[in-house]
Design a protein around this nucleic acid. Structure first.
Lengths: 216, 216
DNA sequence: AACGAAGGCGACCGATCGGTCGGTCGCCAT
DNA sequence: ATGGCGACCGACCGATCGGTCGCCTTCGTT
């Protein structure tokens, strides 16, 4: 019997421990590449116990994705709430998002993976719809911010959806690129100095590409 | 295995038909999500016949990736060969790359997927090393181009590896984003008009973010 | 005519897949 | 004390996984 000792009030529940472990595995090997036996072993449970917390593998995966999207959606809301000019708010959103992705090494990969895989994964579970909703919230928040800046004459007139995709590519992709990114950069993309540098890079992109040519 | 050179266009060989089908399946469902039975059925062969053309599943996957990288590497070489100023060459490389990705709907996804998955997939097959080589060639070609432009004083001084990652995010990611990209854009990312628009967007990014402020 | 290689086939292998089932254990309220 | 309950477990299920095997056909070479 593995000692169940140290059930301190602050200890994470089995459900959360499953989610944490599943997040790491899905990030590394993708949905189909993860076996539930392996996951159960990693958590320290019997495989059948997983089904006491989640109905099925697709629903577990959806729960993992939903948790990540909820984190990000909450972060974006918080970053936007602080106010300021459109550019100030935009830069703060990007800064905070980069911090969040850097702090959660699995998020970027699962985010991108889920984009590739949601073509399949038939089941329309509750969690999946929840995830869609979070995604839509995030996207529309940033879209609205961009349009606000344009209407106020502070932003150049740009194609909002296109910029949105570019922004994702610039913020999320580097954290998902793994060994490849490390090899190119010569350092870990999650290294604090590199995160800081990427913030600068994205910020410069936004300033150059988005700010209305008023000063020059 | 003598070095089989290029085949003239005619009826595609079984090997190529397997590669084509595998490319589509891997793009949609990832390495672990594709079963060899399914692939064989799609090609119209028995499953065991696959092993007459490829030693194993990992090697088949490596061959699919290597073929894509070879296509792209060749395209980049061709784009660079035409000459011109650094900015002209850079814009042509990006233009042609976007055309190539748009013409081969599976490439972008497999490219990104392979970045996520190569942590695993232990076997160091010939094809895998071949793929690494192509990747290195592509990256160093573009890096050299960027450095050349900087040394000539035509490009602003930028962090080359960082820009490289950003560029990948802006060019490859939109074509890999699937339904998500379609939903955001309101149209298929592969639609010719959208491809054209993305070319403009990337070109503008490069001009604003890279061109030295000399033309004044 | 003889032959070997190349390509293809179905049957089959052990392992593993997601998922189910019946049951045990400890806890807590009655 | 007892009975309901949530967490957990091992055993088991049919299906499918990647891969092997032996055999058959086709075809170019000699």
């Amino acid at each position: 019997m593995s000692a169940v000792a140290a059930e301190q009030p602050g200890e994470p529940s089995s459900r959360d421990r499953i989610l944490d472990a599943a997040e790491g595995l899905f990030a590394r090997r993708g949905y189909a590449g993860v076996g539930l036996r392996e996951l159960a072993d990693l958590v320290g449970l019997g495989k059948s116990s997983l089904f006491h917390h989640f109905e099925s593998k697709p629903q577990l995966y959806a729960a993992v994705c939903a948790r990540i999207l909820a984190r990000i959606s909450e972060g974006v809301d918080r970053s936007l709430a602080a106010g300021g000019s459109p550019m100030e708010r935009l830069e703060r959103v990007v800064d905070d998002l980069l911090d969040l992705l850097a702090a959660q090494p699995n998020d970027a990969r699962i985010l991108l993976r889920s984009l590739f895989e949601d073509d399949e994964l038939a089941g329309e579970t509750r969690e999946e719809l929840e995830g869609r909703e979070f995604t839509a919230r995030i996207m529309s928040s940033i879209s609205a911010l961009l349009r606000e800046g344009m209407e106020a004459g502070q932003f150049r007139s740009v194609h909002v959806p296109g910029l949105l995709l570019s922004l994702i590519g610039q913020t999320v992709f580097p954290f998902a690129s793994g060994e490849f990114g490390q090899e190119i950069l010569g350092k870990d993309p999650f290294d604090p100095s590199e995160v800081k540098r990427r913030k600068r890079e994205v910020r410069d992109l936004l300033r150059h590409g988005l700010l209305a040519p008023a000063g020059r």
